[in-house]
């Protein structure tokens, strides 16, 4: 018990929360970028312009089938080879964004697929261009269906930032390792703290997602 009291000293808790701050910062920025890029890629894959869509699709598949850990390594250690020297936080954001964009692209594509074909036909016959129909009619409907998978992707992202400890991103897990690396009695208290902090953040996210999708579905009726 004493271990827990000592482990959760002001200094250590502040240090952990500082780590949580970086975790959230990296996650939020990455999800925002991934949402934009993922939507573009998803649409690009959906519209089926011969070679272009196939190339985009293949790249998405490549990225989706690689471990995020590998992408992290690559971004941090290989990008400087082409003249991009990124500090660890931007490098993590880039790696997460590359990976998550590919994941979101698939979500967007299947979201669009789920919108009945008649919607596009109706919009076009009313005089909208393809782009207008896509932006004003199809995507808004698709996004509604996509909210739950996107949020669960975001939860994965928050969890996955822990992998960036391997390139020493100063996030939550790494900070806990620094703390119990200095006093091994703090190991169990630190794991408990990690479990609680990650759980609270992610569970809150999933509750919000449920709330939003309930709102939206009741709004439709």
């Amino acid at each position: 018990m004493q271990n827990f009291i000592d482990a959760y000293s002001h200094v250590n808790l502040a240090y952990l929360l500082q780590g949580l701050g970086v975790t959230l910062e990296v996650s939020l920025i990455s999800i925002a970028f991934s949402f934009l890029i993922g939507t573009l890629l998803g649409v690009a894959r959906y519209i089926n312009v011969k070679i272009f869509s196939a190339v985009v699709g293949f790249i998405i598949d490549l990225i989706r089938n690689l471990p995020l850990l590998l992408i992290l390594f690559f971004t941090y250690f290989a990008l400087p080879n082409i003249g991009l020297r990124l500090p660890v936080i931007p490098a993590s954001i880039v790696a997460m964004t590359v990976f998550e964009s590919a994941m979101l692209a698939e979500i967007v594509r299947s979201g669009i697929n789920a919108v009945p074909v008649g919607q596009m036909e109706a919009a076009r016959s009313n005089g909208l261009t393809y782009t207008q129909a896509m932006v004003h009619i199809i995507l808004p409907q698709a996004f509604k269906a996509m909210i739950p998978p996107i949020v669960s992707q975001f939860i994965s992202l928050v969890k996955d930032t822990s992998l960036a400890t391997i390139i020493l991103l100063p996030e939550l897990t790494y900070h806990s390792q620094i703390i119990y690396g200095q006093n091994s009695n703090y190991m169990i208290p630190m794991f408990v703290a990690l479990a609680v902090l990650y759980f609270v953040v992610n569970y809150a996210l999933s509750l919000i997602s449920r709330l939003i999708s309930r709102r939206l579905s009741s709004g439709v009726r």
Partner: peptide, 19 residues
């Protein structure tokens, strides 16, 4: 299900490795 889903794999694995 809720607890395990919301905790990073790394944290679970490290707990098994060191504790």
């Amino acid at each position: 299900v809720e607890v395990v889903r919301n905790i990073p794999l790394l944290v679970i694995t490290m707990a098994f490795y060191v504790i």
